[in-house]
Simulated scan of single mutants.
Amino acid sequence: MRTLTIEPLSKAAFAAFGDVIETAGSDHFMINNGSTRRFHKLAAVQTATAEDQAILSIFRAEALPMPLTVRMLERHPLGSQAFIPLLGNRFLIVVAPAGEQPDTAQVRAFISNGQQGINYHRGVWHHPVLSLVPSDDFLVVDRSGTGNNCDEHFFDETHWLVLDPHQ
């Protein structure tokens, strides 16, 4: 099994998979009579049809035992999906480029600094949310509408990957 190298999350490194949602290095302008900086359009919600809606949810994630054997990835073909950490905790991200099925040779792993969120573009393969603390909350922005918006791909055992944040 290949052990994934965990990379620091950055806008440049993550660009092929989506957007990094962070204020560091992002343009802003002043609003509210100069008392507020607006970091505008850090990510765009993607939907497949005009009838779709962008929705906000909170996911409470529990940490999985590490090291983790990555046996599957999922994708959302009809809309983007953003995760913004609410409690300031670092979290892991495992992604692969969009396509009919994920290619394990192209799977990459990132770690958020706890002040960064991510927005997976439509169709990008990713592991479900990976908390590094026993319980963590994320603001999730994604799509609601008709049709199946979650495809799961389970790897055969010869393509499993290892994710070890302690290496």
Rank of each mutant, 00 (worst) to 15 (best):
residue 1 M to P: 06
residue 5 T to V: 05
residue 9 L to W: 07
residue 10 S to R: 07
residue 10 S to D: 11
residue 11 K to Y: 11
residue 16 A to C: 09
residue 20 V to L: 11
residue 23 T to I: 11
residue 23 T to C: 09
residue 24 A to Q: 14
residue 29 F to A: 06
residue 32 N to T: 03
residue 38 R to Q: 09
residue 44 A to G: 14
residue 44 A to P: 01
residue 48 A to W: 05
residue 50 A to L: 13
residue 52 D to Q: 11
residue 52 D to N: 13
residue 53 Q to K: 15
residue 55 I to T: 12
residue 57 S to I: 09
residue 59 F to E: 04
residue 59 F to D: 04
residue 62 E to I: 01
residue 63 A to W: 06
residue 72 M to D: 07
residue 72 M to E: 10
residue 72 M to S: 13
residue 73 L to A: 02
residue 78 L to I: 07
residue 79 G to K: 00
residue 82 A to C: 13
residue 85 P to A: 09
residue 86 L to S: 06
residue 91 F to A: 08
residue 92 L to E: 04
residue 97 P to F: 06
residue 99 G to Q: 02
residue 102 P to I: 01
residue 106 Q to S: 11
residue 107 V to F: 04
residue 108 R to S: 01
residue 109 A to H: 01
residue 111 I to V: 14
residue 114 G to W: 01
residue 115 Q to W: 00
residue 116 Q to H: 08
residue 117 G to M: 08
residue 117 G to W: 00
residue 118 I to M: 06
residue 119 N to K: 07
residue 121 H to W: 10
residue 123 G to R: 01
residue 123 G to T: 09
residue 125 W to H: 04
residue 125 W to I: 08
residue 125 W to C: 05
residue 127 H to C: 07
residue 129 V to R: 04
residue 131 S to H: 06
residue 136 D to V: 14
residue 136 D to Q: 15
residue 138 F to D: 01
residue 140 V to K: 02
residue 142 D to T: 07
residue 145 G to Q: 04
residue 146 T to D: 15
residue 152 E to R: 13
residue 157 E to C: 11
residue 157 E to M: 14
residue 160 W to R: 09
residue 161 L to V: 03
residue 166 H to M: 11
